[in-house]
Nucleic acid binder design. Structure first.
Lengths: 250, 250
DNA sequence: ATCATTGATTTCTCTAGAGAACTGCCTCAC
DNA sequence: GTGAGGCAGTTCTCTAGAGAAATCAATGAT
């Protein structure tokens, strides 16, 4: 027999988490504020340490809070960078238009570290697109305000770029696209595939990600006007640091 | 005095999680396979239940595994849908081109439930873009293979669509865009802003998301050829179910 | 055949306690 | 002043145990 549909109370740790989330979303607790720690929750709610931790871990895994060992748990800050897809690469569009989401539009300066260039055998999917497994690979990491925000792994068909500046750390003015143009392979079309997922452990290290932060993975393929694929660029972005924008016509 | 830089061993729970992750990524454990549960880990590693749970929770929060209460913990399945941005809405592009990431290209049929239409006062950001707070709102949920994959909340300027089929559940052939065209406001330009983040609790319920699944949030604004914003559509997608694709020219 | 019940298995929630590791602050010696 | 050292507070890791709640398969009654 069905009992009356009693809404079953959520467990303690969840009720506590809900309360704290409310405080964050309503603005009672703001960016960088410290929230009550394990000891405080144990005392005020009369619960065991493990239960208090469980409540906090909910918020941490939701990306709303960041723990600092030996110090406390703090409200996560969110101040994303805007990355333009089609507009950035296109010959300026029709568009201005107001944005829905907040972001730092003033171009913040970014630095590149960890440049690494190698000749490698590409994995299957990349080899298929580029028409062969022999590639030059450029690995880079971008940081803004001293914080890493993006990893980029760029593949070029080895036969196409052999000997050019693309195989050297300094690509010269205009970057790799200018060099590709000089080689007669100027990119004309782009395809970007976008996914979001939780980071792999090695990405967590490279991007210095706190728990509860997803990453955005972008696979960009550059084609010449003739339709030859000349670059496959796999990027991994700290999702908390980015808003992507694409503009296009009907 | 600095000791020799001993690489400090990771804690037990992390070593166990690393081992299981390895088994998943290497393919020893495949889609839908059951992984060793709490009791198995306790026995084989001689650890307490809480520690075993902690190891499993790492994989769950990484989105690699899904717990089924009363049954076990299973390897997460990933069979995404491909959503085309610019190509889908544009008058067919130049492009074919191989994809980097796997996905179900054959268009799987989707169903729409939970249609809800209301006249409301929009929040600040939406009102700013649409030029006023009075809007008609269409809320929908899309499912594929019986599983919810997307929530969509679409806003139209009230004055523009008042009395049209857009304010009724059935919009007729061609959908809302055809109706907007008849009203003399055919969308010509689109802007999509994309973010990824962990879901809010209410999204977790609506999309039936297991822990460790981020969502992709898309804010799309449709403009007429004259540059008037006629629709703001805020979508929330199960990140495990989608690969987004954008094609554009240099 | 179909439906209800039972029981084993499994994950989920929580208690109580303890030591390790790290942070930030204060004090004291120089 | 400046640096070293110590100390309190905090998160992190782990143990041991217990009952609740859901799943799944097998059994038994109709």
């Amino acid at each position: 027999m069905q009992q009356s549909p009693v809404p079953p109370e959520p467990p303690i740790y969840r009720r506590i988490a809900d309360g704290l989330r409310q405080a964050i979303l309503s603005g009672d607790l703001r960016d960088g504020d410290r929230l009550p720690g394990e000891n405080a929750l144990m005392a005020t709610h009369g619960i065991a340490r493990a239960t208090a931790r469980q409540a906090l871990s909910v918020l941490i895994n939701e990306g709303l809070a960041v723990p600092k060992r030996g110090s406390g748990v703090y409200v996560r800050q969110f101040r994303p960078i805007r990355r333009h897809g089609s507009r950035r690469l296109s010959r300026d569009g029709w568009g201005r238009g107001e944005a829905i989401w907040d972001s730092d539009t003033r171009g913040r300066p970014y630095t590149v570290d960890e440049v690494e260039i190698d000749r490698e055998t590409a994995e299957e999917a990349v080899a298929r697109v580029l028409g062969g497994p022999e590639v030059w690979v450029r690995r880079r990491r971008y940081s803004v305000d001293g914080r890493p925000v993006q990893i980029s792994v760029s593949h070029f068909p080895a036969g196409l770029v052999e000997g050019s500046a693309i195989t050297r750390p300094d690509t010269g003015a205009g970057g790799v696209y200018a060099r590709l143009g000089e080689l007669g392979h100027l990119p004309a079309h782009f395809t970007e595939e976008i996914r979001a997922r939780m980071p792999h452990p090695h990405e967590t290290v490279l991007l210095d990600l706190p728990a509860g932060t997803p990453v955005i993975a972008i696979a960009r393929v550059a084609y010449t006007a003739e339709g030859t694929a000349v670059e496959v660029n796999e990027m991994v972005l700290d999702a908390a640091s980015y808003v992507l924008q694409y503009d296009f016509d009907a």
